Amino acid sequence: MAKMKGNPGDGLRGSLGGLSYYKMRGVEETIVREPGGASKEKVEKDPNLHMIRRNNAEFSGRSTAGKWIRKVIQAQLPMADYNISGPLASLLKVVQKLDSLGDKGKRTIPLSANPLVIKGFSLNKKNLFDSVVRSPVDYAISRETGSARVQVPALTPAINLFTPDHYAMFRLVIAWGVVPDFYPDGRKDQTYNISPGTVPEMTFYDKIRYYPSHQAYDNIPTEEFRSDWYPVSKGAPAMDRELTLRVFPPDTDFTLVLSIGICYGIMEAADYVRQAPYVGSAKILAVG
C-alpha cells in the first residue's frame, strides 16, 4: 500500500502500479524502481542460476566486512550525511578480487593486503572534513604496539576552521579499531571444487557465511576519544592524543583503522550540549 505526503510523487511511500516508491538518506527525491529478478526460491534451487548464488555469497561477505568497518567508525556514523554501506561494499569488491586462487563464490576479503583502498574514505558528500578543518592532522600508527597518536593543530575560525552555520558548539571525535580479514566459514585453508549447477553446490552456497580467522576478534573493542565542546566562535586549542588497543589481535590478518570527525552541538542548558544528529564531517584518516 502506497502512502502520499505533500505533493503527488513527493512523499509517496510503498508500492503502486507495480512500482516501488521509497526515500533514501542523502537523496532528496523519491526513489522509484520496478521490482524485478528471479524469486528467492528460484535463485536457491534453479541449477541455471548458480552464478547468481555465487555472486550473492560474495556480496554477503562484503556486507559483513562493511558492517565491521562501520562498527569501528561507529563514533562518526552520526556525522554521515548519506548511506555509506554501498560505497564501502564497492571498495571491498576491489579487495575481494585480490583473491586470485579462490573460485568465484568463496573468494576471501583480505583487506590487510590492500588497506589503502579505504584510506581517506569520507562519510560526507556535502561538507568534507578537509574543507572544514583546513590544516593537516598529523598521525602515527603502530601495528607492533597497537597504538595511534593524533595531533590536531589549534583551530581558529575563518583561518583553518570553517564550520556550517547555525551551530554554537563543536568537538572532535577520534576512533581507533581493528578490521579483520574475512574468510568463508572463517577458514583460510578452505578449498572447494564444485561443478556448476550440481545439487551439492546449491546447498553449499546457500549456507556460506563469512567470518574473521579467529573468534577473538569479536572481543576487541574500538578505542574512542571525544574532546570537550568548544564554541564555534572561538575555536579550540591544539590536541595531542594517543589511543592504544586494550586487546591485541590474535593473528596478523587484520587492518588498523584510524578515523576522525568533527560534530556540532546544540546548547540545551547552560551545562548541557546535545550533539546534532546527521551533521558534521568525518573520514578514515589512516590505515595500517
Rank of each mutant, 00 (worst) to 15 (best):
V199A: 13
E28W: 09
T108C: 07
K283I: 06
G26M: 11
P153R: 05
V117L: 10
T191L: 09
L49K: 12
I284L: 12
W229V: 12
K104F: 12
D165R: 15
N219G: 11
R107H: 11
G14T: 03
S60M: 05
K234W: 03
R143I: 07
A113W: 01
G17W: 09
R241Y: 07
S39V: 12
V150A: 02
L16I: 04
Q215W: 14
E201N: 05
N127C: 01
R171F: 02
S90I: 06
S112M: 13
N48A: 15
D185H: 12
L16D: 01
L98D: 02
G288Y: 01
E201S: 10
Y192L: 06
R246E: 12
I220G: 00
V94P: 00
F204I: 05
R209M: 10
R143C: 08
A38V: 08
I69S: 00
F248C: 07
Y210C: 09
D251I: 06
P47W: 03
E242M: 10
P277M: 06
I220K: 01
G17A: 15
G14K: 01
S259W: 01
R241E: 10
P221E: 11
R107N: 05
Y211S: 06
D81G: 12
L98S: 05
P78H: 03
R274G: 07
T244C: 00
G86T: 15
P249A: 07
K67R: 15
S233G: 04
K97E: 10
P110T: 03
V173H: 07
W68H: 11
E144Y: 05
D130I: 06
P250L: 07
R149K: 15
